[in-house]
């Protein structure tokens, strides 16, 4: 992917991770929370999302294309690194490595998740509480979901931190340290929301 546009691609990669992908992730997790309130509430929320105007345009423009670019270019970035946490076991170097590992996990998870839900819907399945209930009735699928959700929230929270550095928002070590605390808070909050919601489908 050698080109004269690397700066543009890298910055686009960083931007897309937060807007729109990060924003979409928050919307998605918020809608999931309706499952905690019960079957009817969740089905009503899913129906509302399905009935949104300009649905296909929003799905393609705000979700599919940004994620595909972020994933493909992200894989290129991930495999360009030569990780050296064994020699340099610093916190940020581990975060650097986890960001790449979690990115690959998230890509696999999202591919599977989209296949089972959105593509299934395109082939005629109905997206509702019982669809998810059936999927996570299999303990392996439930574990896969918990791992996938955690990898996603980690990748997003840590990505927020590097977004702030990449765009020159947090320059001083102090501001970067505070941003680390904020990203830990975001990770904890979103992981709680995500896992609590998925557990609602197994009746917890």
């Amino acid at each position: 992917m050698s080109s004269n546009r690397e700066f543009l691609y890298r910055r686009l990669h960083s931007l897309l991770g937060v807007i729109p992908i990060g924003a979409f992730l928050i919307v998605h997790l918020t809608v999931n929370w309706f499952a905690v309130r019960g079957r009817e509430e969740y089905n009503a929320a899913a129906a509302f999302m399905e009935a949104l105007p300009f649905r296909y345009a929003m799905e393609i423009g705000l979700i599919f294309l940004p994620i595909i670019f972020h994933a493909v270019y992200g894989l290129y970035i991930a495999f360009q690194a030569r990780n050296n946490t064994s020699q340099f076991g610093y916190f940020r170097n581990w975060m650097f490595r986890f960001q790449r590992i979690s990115g690959v996990i998230v890509l696999i998870f999202i591919t599977w998740h989209v296949w089972e839900t959105r593509l299934a819907a395109a082939f005629g399945a109905e997206v509702n509480f019982s669809m998810m209930e059936d999927i996570v009735a299999n303990p392996a699928a439930l574990i896969a979901y918990i791992i996938g959700i955690t990898a996603t929230t980690f990748h997003f929270a840590n990505g927020l931190w590097s977004f702030a550095v990449t765009w020159g928002i947090t320059v001083t070590p102090r501001s970067q340290q505070i941003a680390t605390y904020v990203s830990i808070g975001v990770f904890a909050a979103l992981t709680f929301v995500g896992i609590r919601s998925i557990l609602a489908f197994v009746g917890v």
Binding site: F88, F96, S162, G168, V171, Q176
Partner: peptide, 25 residues
């Protein structure tokens, strides 16, 4: 990629990651 190893390794304790973030801006 913000691994920030450079600033830890620099023998002259140069604030390399601050420089990089400032240049990002």
């Amino acid at each position: 990629g913000n691994s920030q190893n450079c600033v830890e390794a620099c023998p002259k304790e140069i604030p390399l990651t601050t420089s990089i973030a400032a240049l990002n801006r």
